[in-house]
Amino acid sequence: MTEFQTNSPGDFETVQDTVWKQEIAFIDAVPRWLAMSFVFVVFIGSWQLVTALELVSPIILPTPMETLNDMIFVGKNLLTGGYMLGALWITIQEVIYGFALAIAIGFSLGVLVGETAFGEKAVMPYLVAIDTMPKVAFAPLFVAWLGFGIESKVALAAFIATFPIVVGTAAGLHSADENARMLFKTMGASRMQTLIKMKLPTGLPQVFTGLKIGAVGVMAGAITGEFLGGGKGFGELIRVAASQLNTPRVFSLILYLSLVGLAVFAAVSWTQRKVVFWHKERVGAGDA
């Protein structure tokens, strides 16, 4: 077998890769941890500089130290099960339910649109039309329909996250090439078998791309829902802190919130690496 291993296209690429690596510029050769620390230090340094020189009013931009102190305060409240933890839990529930709803609806619609001519002809145009609307504008409607509880936030979060999942799923189902389709035909596969054993697995990378975009949207939807529809979540804490001009609090709340967003995104990335183990992504956050 060795004769085929040596002149395979794959091996040739590896050889080229190593040649390339020798020509990589210094900036691309910096290790990840160092590069990240560097950017972090530059960012905090500039922030410190701007506040220390009082270039902007402290009400608009707190110092890094003030923000850190407030983060510690909020952190303690969260860890000791204070009222902020309750608020965070509400927001997390909105995110989880919203995402689950978006996945269920988005995936089903994606299969309908990607697999059936009916879906592509009759459903997709409406989806595109709705997708081009500013979805946040539906928030008051959801509040009117579902009240001030978490239901209206779940609805908005799901509403925003559904479309990228539909698009990802439909695109994924279209990504199987002519050869694979023909092969399944020669094996006498039914339409269902072709869908489940070939088209869906082939399209999983795109499905996950949709899920990642959806994961970002679901956070935005939950918080926007809380801004516009009240309730007792983290968004409400932010709104209150902002109305009191407590900018350090706003900053630290946002930072904690971003951890929730990161966790959702990381969960999707992790699942993707486990499920779509054969597909190595080169670009995109969370795929180190």
Binding site: N179, A180, K185, G188, F277, W278, H279
Partner: peptide, 19 residues
Amino acid sequence: TGPRRDIGMMFQQATLFPW
């Protein structure tokens, strides 16, 4: 009249499924 078991087919691409 349709795909059959007694016919084997092969194309230019191997088309093995990566999963």
